[in-house]
Each structure stands twice: as C-alpha cells, then as structure tokens.
C-alpha cells in the first residue's frame, strides 16, 4: 500500500507542501490546504498547493480574516462540506475572487482539535460535478480524517516546547498490544492471546499509532521502542 507519510519526506519547510500534493494525487483532489493554530506557542501555520498568484492575492486582500472555510469549519467536529457555507456573504466574497484564479468552490474542510486548544484544518477541493463529488467524498473521508490529524500533529510538534508537551501517553492495554505486535504477532493472534475482539485490537493499535505520530504499526513499534515504552520483540 502506498501511503502518504510525512516521515518519509525530507525535513524541510517544503515537506508539508509536498505532503499536500501527495494527498491530492492519491485522493483525486485538485488542491489541498492546511491551516494550524497553536495558541500555546502563539503560532499560525499555513501550507497550500495553490499557485503563488492566489496566495499573494489572498494575503493582500486579507481574505484569511473572513474565510469561512477557516472560521466556521473549526466550530464543527465533523468535516464541513463547503455547500454548508456557500450561502454566507463571506464565502461568496472569498470564492468570487478564487474563481478568477481558477480555484473551485467545491470542497471539504476537516477540523482537528488537539489536546492543548490547538486547531488544525485540512481542506481539499475539486472541480467536478456535484454527483461525482458526492460519490468521491465517502470513499476518501476516513483516510482524510487520519491524514488531517497526521499533518496537524506533525506541524504542532515542529517546535521544541510543543514536542516536549506532546510526549505520548499510552494505556497499559495499548502497550500490551504494541508489545505483542513487536513480537511479530498478527492482530488476530493478539486478539486470541488477550481474549479480546479483533476490532478491540484494531482500535487500540490505531490509537497507539496516532499517539506515536505513526501511520503504520511497524513505525509505531519502532518509535515506541525508540523512546523506551516497549522492549524490542
């Protein structure tokens, strides 16, 4: 399986842009954008695949101050399809301009809420018929949820203070399951060993991966060993 993974990209400022481009390729989107706010560090982060002309125009016009895909979406816990926002005058203001730059107004924003009041917003847009869009979204929405948290956690832990705050705390069940995974056991095996359902193993692994900022279980195992949470298999 080819996965879009930040840890495979070089440690540079452009790696988030590259990540977003990969998201577009894999999930058939025209553009993707990430905005993150970290009140603890007092920082705001933005990464987009849009062209420089639109970026410049967006900033000059101060559109970030009114853009409802940022301001409204963060009040939802579910992904916000832009059709929910399109009647607002701010939306019309932003996307009338966007249209001139060839940016479609059909999109979705996935809000992420972090533990320290930090907020992330991953948006993806695509120019296509409404029907096509409605078929596409259900197929990609779960993956986009995971990738939204993935890029958000990576951006939030990019400075030292936040990285220290972000030290992962795994429950003993999560550690137990990860330890068995390190020993090479499959999810099915682990379920049998611990007398729990296969799905319970799966949700704990998913949670552990996310806490360790990993997209795959082997990665999570590696990192957990690296910081001494579990022993090498």
């Amino acid at each position: 399986m080819d996965i879009v993974d930040l840890s495979t990209l070089p440690e540079q400022d452009t790696r988030y842009d590259e990540f977003l481009r990969q998201v577009c390729d894999k999930y058939e989107m025209d553009h993707a954008a990430y905005a993150g706010m970290n009140p603890a560090a007092g920082t705001i982060h933005g990464h987009v695949t849009y062209g420089d002309d639109w970026k410049a125009h967006y900033q000059e016009q101060g559109l970030h101050l009114i853009d409802p895909t940022l301001h409204m979406s963060q009040r939802s816990i579910a992904p916000v399809d832009w059709s929910r926002l399109e009647r607002g005058k701010d939306f019309q203001r932003v996307f009338r301009d966007a249209h001139d730059f060839g940016i479609p107004d059909q999109g979705i924003t996935i809000p992420v809420r972090g533990p320290y009041g930090d907020i992330g917003l991953l948006s993806a847009v695509r120019e296509c018929s409404r029907d096509e869009w409605k078929k596409l979204v259900p197929n990609v929405i779960s993956d986009l949820q995971s990738l939204a948290v993935h890029i958000h956690d990576n951006v939030m832990t990019s400075d030292t203070i936040s990285r220290m705050l972000y030290h992962p705390t795994l429950s003993s069940r999560e550690l137990e399951i990860l330890q068995w995974a390190a020993a090479g056991k499959s999810q099915q095996d682990i379920g049998d060993i611990l007398s729990i359902s296969h799905r319970t193993v799966e949700v704990h692994l998913r949670s552990s991966r996310e806490k360790l900022n990993a997209l795959t279980t082997p990665q999570a195992v590696g990192r957990a060993i690296g910081i001494g949470l579990i022993y090498p298999g």
């Binding site: 992420v112 429950s171 949700v203 998913r206 949670s207």
Partner: peptide, 11 residues
C-alpha cells in the same frame, strides 16, 4: 487512571 484512546476516526 489510564490514558484514554486517541484517534482521528473515533469519537
């Protein structure tokens, strides 16, 4: 007292 689960796809 254990840490809760954290997942993008769990509410």
């Amino acid at each position: 007292g254990e840490a809760p689960m954290r997942s993008a796809t769990m509410w």
